[in-house]
């Protein structure tokens, strides 16, 4: 069996665990579908009550869907890796000799599948119950932007994972600190052009903001590939940069791990 195949099997195995573990929580429909739907509905009804243009329903639905992936990266990669370490799974994993990147890829894939199912359901609820309207012909362009956003988000996830391994429980606080401001800056429920230019520029450093804006422009306003090219270039650059930083961080953590025992040190 080739080394590459064994590494890919590692990613598959971790994704399978993530997917199966999620379904094992019997109340997943409540947490994954019903509660986010109620939250999404409350914002939609607020806009409707204010007689906002129908376009805003689409904004809210897409914002809710994309935000799910962000939380999946925050909570699903860094935290999971941290708890793997705390419960002895990291030791058992490191002894297998498999690449930690394949473990992370598996976590990301498993998370993407879980979040994808949840997001698809929310999207359908948005379309069929709340009447969100999207341009079907823009789906390929929106998919391209969406995939690039996922790539850059999960590369960011490698950075979070390495920070979690270094800072331990403080990393969980970091998630809490980052959750709300990024939700605010990404324009989950509104277009970011409501912000002053300086805030818009800061917000544009986040892949979620760029991706969300691109998907909305494609699906709601019907922008073509040429008009979306700044989004595509920016997301591609972000993916490359985050990947470089993430790999550098993680390699350093792995080196420190064997030198100082950090990858197996518990309860820090």
């Amino acid at each position: 069996m080739s080394k590459i195949y064994r590494e890919l099997l590692t990613a598959y195995a971790r994704a399978w665990v993530r997917f199966k573990g999620n379904l094992a929580i019997k109340t997943w429909v409540l947490w994954e579908i019903i509660l986010p739907t109620i939250f999404m509905a409350s914002v939609i009804y607020a806009y409707k009550n204010l007689n906002a243009p129908p376009i805003f329903i689409g904004f809210v639905v897409l914002g809710t869907v994309m935000m799910n992936f962000w939380y999946n990266v925050l909570w699903g990669m860094g935290d999971v890796l941290y708890w793997d370490k705390e419960t002895g799974k990291m030791e058992a994993f490191l002894i297998t000799g498999r690449s930690i990147y394949m473990l992370l890829m598996g976590m990301a894939l498993g998370g993407m599948i879980n979040t994808g199912l949840r997001s698809a359901t929310l999207l359908l609820i948005g379309i069929y119950i709340f009447g969100a309207e999207f341009r079907l012909e823009a789906v390929p362009n929106a998919t391209l932007i969406f995939l690039l956003t996922l790539a850059s988000l999960y590369c960011m996830g490698i950075i979070f994972s390495s920070l979690h391994l270094v800072y331990g429980r403080k990393g969980i606080k970091m998630n809490e600190v980052m959750g709300i401001p990024i939700s605010f800056l990404s324009g989950q429920f509104y277009p970011i052009n409501v912000f002053p230019t300086a805030v818009q520029m800061v917000a544009s450093l986040l892949p979620l903001t760029v991706g969300l804006d691109g998907v909305r422009r494609a699906l709601i306003e019907g922008w073509g590939i040429w008009e979306l090219s700044p989004h595509i270039i920016l997301l591609t650059i972000m993916t490359i940069v985050f990947l470089q930083i993430g790999v550098r961080f993680m390699n350093r953590i792995i080196e420190m791990g064997r030198r100082d025992g950090r990858l197996i040190l518990r309860w820090q």
Partner: peptide, 14 residues
């Protein structure tokens, strides 16, 4: 391989 008596490495929901 290593077996540590203090751990049960694995996923509790599985």
């Amino acid at each position: 391989n290593l077996v540590s008596g203090e751990d049960r490495p694995g996923y509790g929901l599985l």
